[in-house]
Nucleic acid binder design. Structure first.
Lengths: 201, 201
DNA sequence: AAGGCTATGTTGACAGTGTCAAGATAAAAC
DNA sequence: GTTTTATCTTGACACTGTCAACATAGCCTT
């Protein structure tokens, strides 16, 4: 249950698998990620991973969990910059969100894709990390409402869903290859930010 | 090249495959869609489909093409209702877009998913149907700008990308199972519509 | 320390998958 | 009537995830 440090058979296969998977993920994409190759990378046999993960989906969930943890920290760091105005932080958040997706397309696909969420397949471990991340979006939205940046006549939850939906949608259209031209990312971000904040313009 | 009507070997295998695929798609999802099963459905051997489609992706593209054609018609029908105000039509469009995705999740996933778009894998046939569909979104956006519904100080293309991004994002969060609670779809749609039209409120 | 328990890792096997190569058949073209 | 071409077939290959049965090595209790 705990992380054994250099114990008997392999050492810490669980960590080794996640590490190998993360490496393969960013290089070759989530679709060409096979348990057998990961096992080979770690120097064990094909079925060894099954002693650490229920199935492939569970392994993917573990990788995604780390992604959520990382992104949650990044979001907090942006939001907590007290030397910047709320407006500047909001704009920065928009750019950083899309930037994160553009820089880590395969990780983003994994975190917010149907692979691990569909059919209530999400692990509890995953939910424990992801839900606070979603919740933080609502917290920020409420703050921006209080600061008069976002419209106050909307329910915070709905507003958070819509603003997040916007960022998510743009991110997906980019990383899924539907926006073939990715040279105007920053302009799209600014347009989205302006649109939400238009009352102040 | 043309659609043979009840010709020699099978008749019209191409159509039969697309039909079988569409049926299986809505029932079992795009992930469990295999060429071998489709061939079996059509009563031919496993490799027969390869005489009508270059590979699996080409078959999927053909199905998606029909989806785009259908949705394009639906969008036009909504937009062209001259008995309704632009505002009412805009709101209806938002609801219908999300509604289409919610009612045909697997088709939506196929049309706007990475499966057929990634790595420039999209067929020319697909692009010929999809791009006018995307373009129509820009046309509508420009119209709504002229009518004063959407902000006029934004570039029409950027604005279309952002508004479409919003709808796409909400749709994906819904059909990918990330929004576990799908009981407030209409409220989310209204919130999104209000947000874009807030200048008029 | 001895023996059993449990975690971990192994090989073998099975049912799938997409796709290529080579051969068969039937319609069309000449 | 012969040749060409489109279509369909079987055989095969390299993959995949996953289960069952077995082997090993560290831990725990006696």
């Amino acid at each position: 249950m705990a992380n054994a440090v250099q114990s008997y058979h392999h050492g810490d296969l669980r960590s080794a698998l996640i590490e190998a998977a993360t490496a393969r993920l960013s290089e070759h994409g989530v679709d060409s990620l096979s348990l057998r190759k990961l096992a080979e990378d770690a120097g064990v046999s094909r079925t060894a991973p099954y002693h650490h993960f229920k199935d492939k989906s569970a392994l993917l969930s573990a990788i995604a969990a780390k992604g959520f943890s990382d992104w949650h920290s990044a979001a907090k760091r942006i939001f907590d910059q007290e030397d910047k105005t709320p407006k500047a932080r909001f704009r920065e958040f928009v750019h950083e969100y899309i930037g994160y997706a553009a820089d880590n397309p395969e990780m983003y696909e994994l975190m917010f894709g149907r692979t691990i969420w569909q059919n209530q397949a999400a692990t509890n471990d995953l939910k424990d990390v992801a839900f606070p991340c979603f919740q933080f979006q609502v917290t920020m939205t409420r703050y921006w409402q209080e600061k008069g940046l976002l419209p106050n006549n909307q329910d915070a939850l709905r507003l958070a869903q819509v603003t997040w939906g916007t960022l998510h949608g743009i991110a997906r259209l980019l990383i899924d290859g539907i926006y073939a031209d990715s040279s105007h990312i920053d302009e799209m971000c600014d347009c989205a930010a302006d649109l939400f904040m238009q009352k102040q313009v």
